[in-house]
Amino acid sequence: MSEFIQYTLQGLAAGGFYALSALGLAVIFGVLGVVNFSHGACYMLGAVISAVLLAELHVGFWVALLVVPILMYGFGVLMERLLVRWLLALDPLYNFLLTFGLTLILVEAVKQRYGVSGLPYEIPAGLGGQVTIGSVNLSVYAIFACVFSVVVCVGVGLALTRTRIGMIVRAATEAPERTRALGINVGRWVTPVFGFGIALAGLAGVLAAPTRAITAEMGSNFIIVLFAVVVIGGLGSILGAVVAGFLVGLVEAYGIAYAPTYAQIVIFVLMALVVLVRPSGLFGREEIA
């Protein structure tokens, strides 16, 4: 029982990284119609920048938690303005290829500069060690990562449901063409939404930094799982992305703990099952399938 609770916490913490990133992927896909393959690389950049800030500028975790998403927002804005924008009118496949190519460039660039062995990053002071609740030992950092992700997801959820900008983003995510036909200049929101989505991936990277091996390749597996998350949650559903993010984190953690041989495929079995029962995903709408 005690072990089960530990695995659950680890799953929820990992799920938080997925949820934050999938949320970004979902709004970008919704508003721009772009499947951002570089989302895993942006998550990796978030973690690498945190490690570099610490090693070279002695900027700690708490500052990184604020600064890295801002830097990644800027990176996303540049990426949208300089590259993605010019391909929006073409088949979505072009932007998929563009972001795929960008991923290769980012990964190789990080390898060139920082090598293939992991960069060090310690759990920040005050969040190390374990806390004992009853007979269960839980990692303080895992609790923090989990709570922090939930708070950010809830915050984004409130911003999406309680503000006019949020309402426009939801509408544009669901049906961009119709939203334009109702007098809303969807194009004006394209750059900020793209930057915001990338910033969320970067934030997930910062949160992951103290618990993961920080390497150029850390995003490669991440993006594949992220696509599974989006398919399970339902393409174009923001709530679906968040719920499926935590769900996949849990399933992955239980898989590693109880069926290590099959750990790599449990998520995809889950994805196959969901798609069999509900082709448009858990929260997807019928017409999207």
Binding site: M167, A171, E174, L182, G183, I184, R285
Partner: peptide
């Protein structure tokens, strides 16, 4: 063209008054 992710009131209030 009704939005599933918007309430009835939000569906009405989404477009600008022109």
């Amino acid at each position: 063209g009704i939005y599933a992710s918007l309430t009835v009131a939000e569906n009405l209030l989404l477009p600008p008054v022109v």
